[in-house]
Nucleic acid binder design. Structure first.
Length: 546
RNA sequence: GGCCCCAUCGUCUAGGUAGGUCCAGGACACCGGGUUUUCAACCCGGCAACAGGGGUUCGAAUCCCCUUGGGGCUACCA
């Protein structure tokens, strides 16, 4: 009888939840759910400089949007709290003292500059840097002295140097690090906070974590963490899994930096930008903008987003919210992320959370890095939109419309459901919004797409056809889809043309673009009065140009 | 530079832990055709891979070694 599985997702609150983090969270969650275990959310906020105040909330919102709910953690509590590391300092101090007392850790007084110099020297000798442990550990009075001199005090863990260290990874097997390969590392910073490598070990122990599933970028930390665990605790180590990294199509790890990078490229590519206006849009100073363009500084996320919108530049989606704003469903994200480095072993691809949970198995994790392919993601979204029940899709659509502030949001549920059904084949929620938008604009808010006007109104007698259609519509007593369809089809026979020749001018007249809901429904839903008004406006506006 | 991980179609991957049933299967993308009132969706067909070199073996995508290539880490960040 094996013990109950306990996993955890331990983000540092430095910003929004990004796809890499979401995937880590998902795999941890899936394993816990699959085995009837517990999934813990722990916030690793031990870096005072990097934490953003709202990040924890954002991360939690995004996890919930994905359907990943934690059993223990912030807002839900649990027996192993608190779940914010910044509230656990006393606990860490206790263990640091223990290590110090047992001579397994020691004080250091080096400055950053001194350490940098040592590192440089090691590199120039083509050796890996390893902190050289003092023969005798400084005592309390040394600490007082150093403090009096204004020196920073840190604590280092004395890593056993005489034996090789072996990390047993569930998917990768045993990984050996040579004796002495892991140098003494800092476990307490000069501000009194523990480092990640320390707090993580203590909390994994206290929270009884059985499986640590994390990115491959943590593999090199593991031997040190294991050594720490053994120095502190007698119970067996948790099991480790280091997942492959998700790489970007631009090469390298998929990173939040890609958005600012893309924006910078976009700014440079355009010659005629009003930089002052741009800075103002992002609510930053022209100097800040300048240093951003030169690659020296990094504005915050709202500034990046605002400037991108101002320029009409599409930034790659990296954060989970980016995908939400691009009209992706949470079901899509969870499905796609799960298949990045894992598969169920048969040819199934489109799966919902329940199916993923049922099929999940650590032994089916892939070792190789995988590339985040947005085109496949789009295909997945198309599938999920197709298979999601309209009522559920309605909820997703509402949330989307609300955040993008769409006029379509004013529609009643019943109408929105009808629209959803008419949008069969949509790839994202953006498609649905775009196709139905014209129904919720005032007549004078219609913007004409130049290309559409040229192609369907100013060519092939578009305006003439539109005039005929207008009169037939005006003459109608009933204004149902069927009557409208009959009339238009009848016209195609008279004129011996395809329906496109007749429908498209009408579509452009009422929508301003060539893309909308199916034409009969479009006209019927808009209603006779507005349809005629829009046609008249169109005829008047473009008659002169013809 | 050092340490560590990885390597099947353009991409995600199946197959590799019991070597033959794999002249390598699926999906996305792409190409060609069809359907069509727009955008999509949909239907049919097609292209396309075991990184290279050595072993082991009757036989290797599957096991071993080297090379090459990609990635990660190298902080008083996590």
């Amino acid at each position: 009888m094996s013990e109950k599985v306990v996993t955890r997702f331990a983000p540092s609150p430095t910003g929004y939840l990004h796809v890499g983090g979401a995937r880590t969270a998902l795999f941890n969650w899936l394993l816990a759910k699959r085995t009837g275990g517990t999934f813990i959310l722990r916030i690793e906020d031990t870096d005072q400089k990097r934490n953003t105040p709202t990040a924890t909330q954002q991360v939690m919102d995004d996890l919930r949007w994905l359907g990943i709910q934690w059993d223990e953690g912030p807002e839900v509590g649990g027996p192993n709290g608190p779940y914010l590391q910044s509230q656990r300092i006393d606990i860490y101090n206790k263990y640091i003292k223990k290590l110090l007392d047992e001579q397994k850790a020691y004080y250091c007084f080096d400055t950053t500059e001194e350490l940098d110099a040592l590192r440089k020297e090691a590199e120039s000798q083509k050796k890996s840097f390893s902190y050289s442990r003092p023969k005798e550990f400084p005592n309390e009075s040394d600490v007082e002295k150093a403090k009096a001199q204004g020196r920073d005090v840190t604590v280092r863990f004395a890593v056993p140097q005489d034996v090789p260290m072996v990390v047993a990874d569930i998917v990768r097997g045993e990984i050996t690090f040579a004796a002495g390969a892991i140098g003494d590392f800092i476990i307490q910073k000069s501000d009194g906070f523990p480092t990640y490598n320390f707090a993580c070990v203590v909390d994994d122990y206290l929270m009884k974590i059985t499986h640590v599933i994390r990115g491959q970028e943590h593999l090199n930390n593991t031997p040190g963490q294991q050594a720490l665990w053994r120095a502190l605790f007698s119970s067996p180590l948790p099991k480790y899994v280091h997942m492959s990294v998700t790489v970007s199509d631009t090469g390298g790890k998929l990173s939040k930096r890609e958005r600012p990078k893309t924006l910078r490229t976009a700014i440079k590519a355009k010659q005629d930008i009003d930089l002052e206006k741009l800075a103002e849009t992002g609510n930053i100073t022209p100097e800040q903008l300048d240093s951003f363009i030169k690659g020296k500084a990094m504005p915050d996320i709202p500034a990046i987003d605002a400037m991108a919108e101002y320029l009409g530049a599409a930034l790659p989606e990296i954060n989970i919210v980016d995908f939400f704003k691009s009209g992706y469903l949470p079901e899509t994200m969870v499905n796609f992320l799960a298949l990045l480095g894992w598969n169920p072993g048969d040819n199934r691809e489109i799966m919902v959370l329940d199916e993923l949970t049922e099929s999940f198995d650590l032994s089916r994790l892939t070792k190789a890095n995988s590339l985040f392919d947005r085109r496949k993601l789009l295909a997945f979204n198309t599938e999920h939109i197709k298979m999601t029940p309209p009522e559920k899709l309605l909820q997703h659509l509402r949330a989307y419309l609300k955040t993008v502030n769409s006029p379509v949001n004013s529609a009643e549920d019943e109408l929105l459901l009808k629209i959803i059904k008419l949008c069969e084949g949509a790839r994202t929620l953006v498609d649905i919004e775009r196709k139905s938008r014209f129904l919720f604009l005032d007549n004078d808010e219609i913007e004409y797409d130049n290309k559409a006007v040229k192609k369907v109104l100013l060519k092939n007698d578009g305006l003439a056809v539109l005039t005929i259609v207008r009169d037939k519509l005006a003459a109608m007593e009933q204004f149902t889809e069927q009557v409208i369809e009959d009339m238009l089809r009848c016209l195609t026979e008279e004129k011996q043309v395809g329906l496109g020749k007749i429908a498209q001018p009408l579509r452009v007249a009422i929508c301003g673009t060539t893309v909308s809901l199916p034409i009969f429904e479009s006209v019927q839903m808009l209603g006779k009065k507005d349809t005629l008004t829009r046609i008249d406006t169109t005829l008047k506006k473009f008659a002169a140009e013809n």
